[in-house]
Amino acid sequence: MVKEMSMAGEHQAVKDYEDPPPAPLLGVEELRRWALYRALIAEFIATLLFLYVTIATVIGYKRQSQAEQCNGVGLLGVAWSFGGMIFVLVYCTAGISGPSLSALCIINI
């Protein structure tokens, strides 16, 4: 019985498909398409907007003095600023640049 199992383990299964050859990351044809540049512009603008809003919120939080605790956004406002801007970045650019680029931006953040 043990011998039968070891003989069956040595037998390799035959694939009923063939793996396609690996595709290049960025082909020459891709550089000629407007969709690539449109996606790059959208991601660039979204990233600038993200940085502008979040850094402005952090600067506003840092300038808040102890006497004016209720006049600023507070620590929770900073967290909502980052979370909200990530949502806006993904929601607005996913249709243009595709969800994979937006997801990469979020993972890198």
Rank of each mutant, 00 (worst) to 15 (best):
M1C: 11
V2F: 12
V2P: 00
V2I: 13
K3A: 09
E4K: 09
M5A: 13
S6L: 14
M7Y: 03
A8Q: 12
G9E: 14
E10F: 12
H11I: 14
Q12Y: 06
Q12C: 06
V14T: 07
K15N: 12
K15M: 13
K15C: 08
D16F: 10
Y17H: 15
E18I: 08
D19S: 12
P21K: 11
A23L: 05
L26Q: 08
L26K: 06
L26G: 00
G27S: 14
G27T: 13
V28Q: 13
E29P: 08
E30V: 11
L31M: 13
L31P: 00
R33E: 15
R33L: 07
W34L: 12
A35Q: 15
A35R: 15
L36I: 07
L36K: 01
Y37P: 00
Y37I: 05
R38C: 13
A39C: 10
I41S: 08
A42Q: 01
A42C: 02
F44V: 06
I45R: 01
L48G: 05
L48N: 04
L49S: 08
L51P: 00
L51F: 11
Y52T: 11
V53Q: 02
T54S: 03
T54C: 02
T54M: 01
T54F: 03
I55Q: 01
A56S: 15
A56N: 13
V58E: 01
V58C: 01
I59P: 02
I59C: 02
G60D: 06
G60I: 05
Y61R: 04
K62H: 10
K62C: 08
R63G: 00
R63E: 11
R63T: 08
Q64W: 00
Q64G: 07
S65H: 02
S65P: 04
E68F: 04
Q69S: 15
Q69E: 13
C70E: 14
C70L: 15
C70K: 06
N71R: 15
L75V: 13
L76D: 12
G77E: 04
G77H: 07
V78H: 01
A79V: 14
W80Y: 14
F82W: 13
G83N: 13
G83F: 12
G83L: 15
I86G: 06
F87Y: 12
V88R: 02
V88E: 07
V90P: 05
Y91A: 14
A94C: 09
A94V: 10
G95Y: 05
G95V: 05
I96Q: 01
S97E: 02
S97R: 02
G98C: 06
G98D: 03
G98E: 07
P99K: 15
S100E: 10
L101M: 11
L101Q: 05
L101T: 05
A103K: 09
L104S: 08
L104T: 07
L104C: 08
C105V: 03
C105I: 01
C105Q: 01
C105N: 03
I106T: 09
I106W: 03
N108Q: 03
N108K: 04
I109N: 04
I109E: 02
